[in-house]
Design a protein around this nucleic acid. Structure first.
Lengths: 110, 110
DNA sequence: GTAAAAAGACTGTTTAAATGGACATTAGAG
DNA sequence: CTCTAATGTCCATTTAAACAGTCTTTTTAC
């Protein structure tokens, strides 16, 4: 039996929600599974896994089908994603490039 | 040379933004790459790909590291994800189970 | 200034995802 | 009611991701 890894509940729910929103968007557009899979350049089996919230699919495939059916990704306001990227990169730039763990105090009282 | 598929710009920007937000959250927590990778149960190479916005990683890995560093997924309001799933499933339930394409009008005027 | 660890980049092997196809059931258009 | 295609489910093969490890550079703590 293949080893199965565990995920946190939050991560699992996010994948399930993503899948449900993709299924909703596809049905609202009246596209069949084959139709959407062909548009996204993936197989129908892969799309089924995505819509069922499986964790194993490539994020590129997931985001592509989400984009095609109009699921919004990371747009709490109406700024385009490129602006969000800019903002986040600015914040990252303010932090050290490497996270060096502080050395433990050496106890060599002998 | 490996065949490379194309993605829409929106999907690509979403993956880049996700990666940047994960990097920001990791640095804000002062975790090294190895530290976060270990916590998420993935390799350091995989985490590097995720933070660089590559499209090939499993969505489970991406969502897991995002969860660990506090990146919010699909929470425009403060409802828990389970509520969003419920709402979305209710909407899906109102639509037909299968999307049957309408038959093209048959022209048999001979 | 020094030492060590973090990060960047790469590689060969192992593991698993993606695929195309098959088959059965049944939902939905007409 | 009938017919067809959509969906569910499964499988063997192909393709690629994940991994552990290595090496180099340079950043950071002291």
């Amino acid at each position: 039996m293949a080893k199965q890894r565990t995920y946190s509940q939050y991560a699992q729910e996010a994948a399930v929600l993503m899948g449900e929103q993709i299924k909703l968007g596809r049905k609202q557009r009246q596209w069949s599974e084959k139709n959407l899979a062909d548009r996204a350049g993936i197989s129908r089996t892969t799309l089924q896994k995505i819509e069922n919230g499986e964790m194993s699919c490539a994020i590129g495939s997931v985001f592509e089908v989400a984009t095609l059916v109009g699921v919004k990704l990371f747009e709490p306001d109406n700024l385009p994603l490129s602006k969000h990227i800019e903002h986040t990169r600015d914040k990252v730039a303010l932090l050290p490039q490497r996270i060096k763990a502080k050395k433990k105090a050496v106890r060599d009282d002998f």
